[in-house]
Design a protein around this nucleic acid. Structure first.
Lengths: 230, 230
DNA sequence: ATTTGTGCGGATCGATTCGCTCCGCACAAT
DNA sequence: ATTGTGCGGAGCGAATCGATCCGCACAAAT
């Protein structure tokens, strides 16, 4: 996707450019989440399938990239919280919020807090988000849907705890793209279990198919060639 | 604890030696779990409060150390599973097993599978463990304590998912030893939530005190000096 | 046809960090 | 005194880091 060999028209060219924008940004999120303070710009470029130069064209450096990711993360938190409040059902709103945040990977950037000079200034967006989040919890409590002894902080930590998936990360690293969906589905079930643990109501059926043992054993298997042939 | 300045007797000296053994081993577990494939021997030595030389006296290198950790992990898995089966209450046995494994950090070594030449040969210990584990799940299912739609693999992945605690790891890195117990307690609550989600029974009260918001915000705070004065 | 402009991949830089070796020191036993 | 043991860390060559820079491919402008 980085090569621009077959582009013929101006519009197509521009599309490729913005596609690279997105590829770099998403790759950066994945790599920062996976490697934490050991994340490298080269790894980000490779994950994006892009040369290092193309990355430095858009971002002045590692810090710049990281700050952009933080902003994006704040926005997602705010939007998801407000979307949750818009749901007429307090519990469905909360449950959807948790699933969204886990799959987004909220909190996976936090461990880098003290590595980068990133002022977590309480800007307007994050304040809006925090009150929306608090309202959401309170509403679920008041409706009797959320068990009374769990707090907002519990839920923050729960999201953070499920936001990373070591299995998913390793499979991606191994190039086992065939198993990614299974792994995602498997985590989705665990989220559902946790939500039932939060819910003040009888459990709902777990989503998707039960994960196979092969999913767990995949990482110990002999590596199936790092990537496809060039 | 590495300096041996004040030892006076032979027994005390030996005690310090074996204490270093343990310190290195446990530090290695923490660092491998925290840094994954980026773990370095220097980091392990520092975490253990020990010189690099002392580490290389005991282990021929990184691989050797890692294999020793794998063995230890297998033993824990087997012993915990058998301990669980020894519990007359199927559910209590399973729940205790999960808590034990999460706090031990089972599965945190798996992401290193393809970095090190580590043959995960199905030795006798791990086979014993696997059958014990399967029996444990089956017993809980049969007793009606474990909700019928969760599988053994679900539980393996759940343990793996909760085995790492980004918060705990970062607080340790920041030297905030004052918050470690709070963070552990907070994760313990999340495990309890998940267990209630697994349990085919009304929820039990969450353990410990609710976590404070300060716990989450700690990592963004201005760093309180990396370590104590020398 | 030629020039210009843009986005790109990656070789390459000096600096840093890697796994690991080696050596001198402190202390107890001989 | 001598020996033996465990230790901390300076320092080795190799590898990797963040960042720079340059030549190429291609479309638009001339």
């Amino acid at each position: 996707m980085a090569t621009m060999g077959s582009s013929r028209h101006r519009a197509a060219r521009q599309a490729e450019v913005t596609q690279n924008d997105q590829a770099i940004f998403e790759a950066a999120r994945r790599v920062f989440a996976r490697d934490g303070r050991h994340a490298t710009v080269a790894a980000i470029a490779e994950e994006a399938g892009v040369g290092i130069g193309s990355l430095y064209r858009r971002y002045s450096g590692k810090d710049h990239l990281f700050r952009a990711l933080l902003d994006h993360s704040n926005r997602q938190w705010a939007e998801a919280a407000e979307r949750a409040l818009a749901d007429p059902d307090p519990w469905q709103g909360l449950a959807g919020f948790v699933v969204e945040c886990v799959e987004f990977g909220q909190g996976t950037l936090a461990p880098l807090a003290d590595e980068v000079e990133a002022a977590p200034e309480p800007d307007e967006t994050s304040q809006r988000a925090d009150t929306a989040f608090q309202d959401m919890i309170q509403r679920a409590h008041h409706a009797g849907a959320l068990r009374p002894d769990v707090t907002a902080v519990d839920i923050i930590l729960l999201i953070e705890q499920l936001g990373r998936s070591p299995l998913l990360e390793q499979l991606r690293l191994q190039g086992r793209t065939d198993l990614l969906d299974d792994a995602r589905s498997a985590r989705r079930r665990i989220v559902a279990v946790a939500l039932d643990g939060l819910h003040h109501a009888p459990p709902t059926a777990l989503p998707g198919e039960p994960p196979t043992l092969g999913l767990v054993e995949a990482r110990w298997s002999t590596r199936p060639e790092r990537r496809a042939a060039p």
